[in-house]
């Protein structure tokens, strides 16, 4: 449904997104994971057309966003909606919930009062809020309830794709599960495709069907979530998974010395960006950017020189 083709976004010297190619298939949940500042939110902004790519193309149903006519773009904006991390910042504090949820509808349609009221009530009901919520202001709700309001607003135009940027990380542990279950339910009900941005790996494994791992503006590994978590192939993915503290007192965390410092996006390391932290780097790593090669599982790829060396045949077979 959504295809990113060699998309880059540069802010001056910072390559926030650096040649990313990704496909978000219809009906799936693609999770984008990676450390702070690796370009996740920038990628979301490009998809939401809040920013323009410096180079590369974004295709929706095969159509290049940059080539779309005004009316096609209007259609695109209807079909792609977003829910952001901070439910405090993303809702206008001066508007009542009814106006917040109705806002996207009124931007695209001219419904009569009665049918608008009915649609708002239905939307609130879908996200588990009572109809009486419509007349209240955002500050009268808890964080979890505000996130429900944001989800109702995103659903208002019956979108096909929802971009969820850290949708539960600002919420309390005891509230997160409520919102995650709600997102799973409405995905079924409305046949939604999700692109979810998250840094909590356990949550990603739980919630997504596909996972893409980003490091300093690039995708280093991508595949079905069970393959990426079951057979992590890029050294960075492996380091990330090992570093997750588990709610189990007998789980042992790795030797911290191995994990190194995160490099700066202003001055990314040469070749493979991960090489200064990589425990298995070889001489070619600082010199050349590694290409994507096949990893175990259908459509599972990773960008690492070692994998290219270990799988020369598959590599050769995959390139015509």
């Amino acid at each position: 449904m959504l295809v990113l083709d060699q998309v880059s976004k540069h802010y001056g010297a910072v390559k926030a997104v650096d040649g990313v190619s990704l496909t978000v298939p219809e009906g799936q949940t693609l999770a984008l994971v990676g450390e702070s500042g690796c370009g996740k939110t920038t990628l979301a902004k490009l998809i939401l057309m809040l920013e323009k790519p410096t180079t590369g193309r974004i295709l929706f149903d095969g159509q290049d966003l940059a080539q779309m006519s005004r009316s096609q773009l209007k259609g695109y904006r209807r079909q792609v909606q977003a829910v952001f991390q901070d439910p405090y910042a993303s809702l206008n504090p001066r508007l009542r919930v009814a106006s917040i949820v109705a806002e996207p509808i009124l931007a695209h349609e001219r419904p009569d009062r009665a049918s608008l009221k009915k649609r708002v009530e239905e939307l609130l009901d879908h996200v588990g809020l009572p109809a009486s919520a419509a007349s209240l202001f955002p500050h009268e709700f808890s964080g979890g309830q505000r996130q429900r309001i944001a989800i109702a607003r995103a659903l208002a135009l019956r979108p096909r794709l929802m971009v969820l940027d850290e949708p539960v990380s600002a919420l309390d542990v005891s509230i997160r599960a409520q919102v995650l279950n709600l997102l799973a339910d409405i995905q079924q009900e409305f046949s939604l495709t999700y692109l979810v941005i998250a840094h909590d790996l356990a949550l990603v494994e739980h919630f997504s069907t596909q996972t893409a791992v980003a490091y300093l503006g690039r995708i280093v590994e991508h595949g079905a979530t069970e393959d990426v978590f079951g057979a992590p192939s890029h050294p960075y993915t492996r380091a990330l998974l090992e570093a997750v503290p588990q709610p189990d007192p007998d789980h042992v965390l790795p030797d911290a010395a191995l994990l190194g410092e995160i490099a700066s996006a202003l001055d990314p390391p040469s070749g493979c960006h991960f090489h200064p932290r990589c425990p298995v780097a070889v001489p070619i790593c600082p010199r050349e950017r590694p290409a994507e090669v096949n990893a175990p599982g259908a459509g599972h790829t990773a960008a690492c020189h070692l994998l290219a060396a270990a799988r020369p045949l598959e590599h050769a077979a995959s390139s015509p």
Partner: peptide
């Protein structure tokens, strides 16, 4: 309830047991 409500690595596909209310 708290321990049941958090996703854990390796627990793919299981529905989280949410704590109702606040």
């Amino acid at each position: 309830a708290l321990l049941a409500a958090i996703p854990k690595l390796g627990s793919r596909g299981r529905r989280l047991v949410a704590i109702p209310g606040q």
